[in-house]
């Protein structure tokens, strides 16, 4: 494959052959083209190829995450969506995606929307003391007053500059609501088997993904509030806390109203869902 064929492949994300064999072929082609550019010391071209490699990674991870959600592997999908987000962050300052010919804007928007539907609220945040690190480009030890000259996040020799941490000390762990590493979700453990128990409810994503027929069907989500009939909350006593989350007693809060005020999620689809799944409501 030459570079024009690779670009065509990247643009044709909706209909292309995404088999492992084809992907390996595209990745190999990009590697060769970058190698040739580096031989000729063409840094600009090597950087451009790095951008295409990232683009392919984002596109493929988006498709994988979609499949994972379709098959009910929600935590796995969450981690894959995070990979999309990270790669997009790396790419954003190097690659213009204004006209969205590679669908990266579409993917970024939908990755964020999917993430907003996951039920995870608390995460681990490790505290790590970095004592020694090296530059991944020149392999020199990083010194605060005598930098190696390579800037983190910039592209050199077709690779993004980062730091290789060589000596660390683990100081502690905290719980946070918005982590850098989204994969550090808190899970329960089965006391008998010691295995992870996924106790989260993925009802919103299940509802949505069932109605999507393609990863490229656009959709939007709008959050509002609406009252749900008291008959759905028969298990709540008058003196219990109101199910709306106000911290007030039920009898002093929503019980005085026509229903319980709950978050309400409205999806809009660019491609109508299958007939039998249209105009349905779901209480979660």
């Amino acid at each position: 494959m030459n570079i024009d064929q690779v670009i065509e492949y990247l643009k044709n994300i909706k209909e292309r052959d995404s088999s492992p064999k084809k992907l390996a072929e595209v990745n190999e082609a990009l590697k060769k083209i970058k190698g040739k550019a580096l031989k000729e010391n063409n840094q600009e071209e090597a950087k451009r190829i790095w951008c295409f490699q990232q683009t392919l990674k984002i596109q493929e991870n988006y498709l994988i995450a979609y499949r994972q959600m379709k098959h009910g592997y929600f935590y796995e999908a969450w981690c894959t969506l995070e990979q999309c987000e990270l790669s997009s962050g790396f790419l954003s300052s190097h690659f213009s995606i204004c006209d969205d010919e590679y669908l990266l804007n579409f993917i970024n928007k939908h990755v964020e929307q999917y993430q907003s539907l996951f039920p995870y609220g608390m995460f681990f945040s490790p505290e790590i003391l970095v004592k020694e690190k090296k530059c991944n480009i020149c392999r020199k030890r990083v010194s605060i007053r005598k930098p190696c000259g390579h800037e983190v996040g910039e592209i050199y020799n077709g690779e993004m500059c980062g730091r290789l941490v060589e000596n660390i000390e683990f100081l502690g762990i905290s719980f946070v609501k918005s982590p850098v590493q989204k994969y550090s979700v808190l899970f329960m453990t089965d006391q008998k088997t010691g295995k992870k128990v996924d106790h989260y409810s993925y009802s919103l994503i299940r509802y949505l993904i069932k109605r999507l027929q393609s990863p490229f069907d656009s959709w939007d989500v709008h959050w509002t509030k609406r009252r749900h009939p008291h008959s759905k909350f028969k298990y709540v006593g008058r003196n219990d806390k109101c199910p709306c989350g106000s911290e007030e007693k039920y009898k002093n809060c929503c019980l005085m109203e026509s229903g319980v005020l709950m978050p309400h999620c409205i999806f809009t689809f660019s491609v109508p869902p299958p007939v039998e799944l249209r105009n349905t409501e779901y209480t979660y």
Partner: peptide
């Protein structure tokens, strides 16, 4: 300048989005 000796310089990574 940085108020530290070169040999004592260490960075703290907190994995939260702040």
């Amino acid at each position: 300048n940085v108020c530290i000796e070169e040999r004592d310089y260490k960075e703290l990574i907190l994995h939260a989005d702040l």
